[in-house]
Nucleic acid binder design. Structure first.
Ligand SMILES: NC(=O)c1ccc[n+]([C@@H]2O[C@H](COP(=O)([O-])OP(=O)(O)OC[C@H]3O[C@@H](n4cnc5c(N)ncnc54)[C@H](O)[C@@H]3O)[C@@H](O)[C@H]2O)c1
Ligand SMILES: NC(=O)c1ccc[n+]([C@@H]2O[C@H](COP(=O)([O-])OP(=O)(O)OC[C@H]3O[C@@H](n4cnc5c(N)ncnc54)[C@H](O)[C@@H]3O)[C@@H](O)[C@H]2O)c1
Lengths: 211, 211
DNA sequence: GCGATATTGTGAAATATTGCACATAGTTGA
DNA sequence: TCAACTATGTGCAATATTTCACAATATCGC
């Protein structure tokens, strides 16, 4: 469609990876970095770094490199992480709680403003981060009232689709799903899946070959 | 190099995805499935399913489809998940504990046999799954004695490299890293990273475009 | 001011991955 | 036995992504 829609998805993901060492460099007051050094820090090819950035503008200075602070600001602008996002989490088991408690998300502007579970014994409990676990029946009005934009699903797999449907219908724009099932989504909602077991299986495949 | 090394990494990951609905189909006693139906369940192209499988053999029957049970067995053989794997986990914070407790991993043959932390107040504590948290100084001998093959890192980011080095040096064959840092590895050790925040940033990028 | 040096931005080549389209082969029913 | 049907396996074309290689442009020392 438009120009931006032709940007490779892997490039977008790499931008996020680039921002990690940049934050460290900013802390250590390194003013400038070359694509070569940044590439080495991220384990990619230097031309890749330049090309990824070039999709969005000319952020470097030829013969010099990239200003660390400026580049980080630009990347955050591109990824839309220069603003806060409002999230909720459905399924307050071990994983859901770990995510809700995680400081890194808060630091990066991901604000969890509601937590839901269908287990009656969990409802009403206060998490260390201050959130109170609500019944899943309150998802619809919470999403509306708190203007929740992203939903995180950490329920049992068999409930995942149901809550995804409910979240989408309530108006969330995106879902991050940790349940190991394929979620059917509507056009208006972007979904990303995280499945640790797939990564483990990938590792198993490779090391079994060697043995 | 050899034939297998030319198999695309995405194909390997998809095999793991295919196994999820296959397990459900096996439970519901569906004897046979076509590449078209399996593809729809996984949200991919049917030709992709056939091609991915064809890298490893001819598992289907023309005009019929794939026998669900046989296919699942074959995929598990390929991914080397038809056997048990011995794992340890370093960093028993919220995320580390959630992973150690997770039933799915155990069910799939990933056995956590040791848990380590450097926080003295955590050492000696018994987890619900029965593991006792040990000091990180015991990593080397535990990996050797328990023949641990895969290490999972869920420490603070700044400690991740140190423990990765220690795990590799102790003889683990693979590392699954959850700390948001680039880990430098040796040739003999395969690494996979899981970074939830990257996924969130990807979502943020897409939904910010729409708004 | 100018040559030597560094490093970006980018077109074009190389490589990797996906999807099409159809020959191939098994099944079913007459 | 054979025709009609179904769905796999696969060569090849299409697409996507990565990497190369170099012109463009900035800096530095003299
Ligand atoms: N923990 C992990 O490491 C991990 C890794 C990958 C995927 N996942 C997936 O994330 C999801 C949540 O995992 P988790 O580890 O947080 O699971 P968990 O068992 O801690 O809790 C998951 C949910 O199930 C409910 N639940 C758990 N036990 C229950 C019981 N006895 N009765 C009624 N309800 C109960 C909880 O209320 C919670 O909402 C699952 O789909 C899991 O497959 C988890
Ligand atoms: N929890 C998540 O959702 C999540 C998501 C993505 C990545 N991660 C990463 O995984 C790693 C672990 O995350 P977590 O949520 O389990 O972190 P956590 O804060 O629960 O614990 C992490 C580790 O730090 C130690 N620790 C924590 N607080 C401490 C303190 N006050 N004093 C001394 N030691 C302390 C713990 O002993 C533990 O080993 C981090 O690198 C984090 O960035 C976590």
């Amino acid at each position: 469609m438009n120009k931006e829609s032709k940007i490779p998805a892997p490039s977008i993901e790499r931008l996020a990876y680039y921002s990690r060492p940049l934050e460290a460099l900013l802390d250590s007051e390194t003013p400038v970095i070359s694509s070569e050094k940044l590439a080495r820090l991220c384990g990619v090819n230097p031309a890749q770094v330049r090309k990824d950035l070039a999709y969005f503008g000319e952020f470097g200075v030829r013969g010099v490199g990239y200003d660390v602070r400026d580049l980080l600001v630009e990347i955050k602008k591109i990824l839309a992480t220069d603003r806060d996002w409002t999230l909720c989490i459905v399924g307050m088991g071990n994983l859901g709680s770990a995510i809700a408690e995680n400081e890194n998300f808060k630091k990066r502007g991901y604000k969890f403003v509601a937590a839901f579970d269908s287990d009656p014994t969990k409802i009403g409990r206060t998490l260390p981060c201050g959130l109170i676990i609500e019944p899943t029946s309150r998802i619809r009005e919470s999403v509306r009232d708190l203007k929740i934009e992203i939903g995180v699903i950490t329920t049992r797999p068999h409930e995942a689709q149901r809550f995804a449907d409910l979240l989408m219908d309530s108006g969330v724009k995106a879902i991050l799903n940790f349940a190991p099932v394929q979620i059917r989504t509507l056009e208006c909602c972007k979904i990303e899946n995280v499945d640790f077991a797939v990564k483990l299986e990938h590792l198993a495949y490779h090391i079994a070959k060697i043995l």
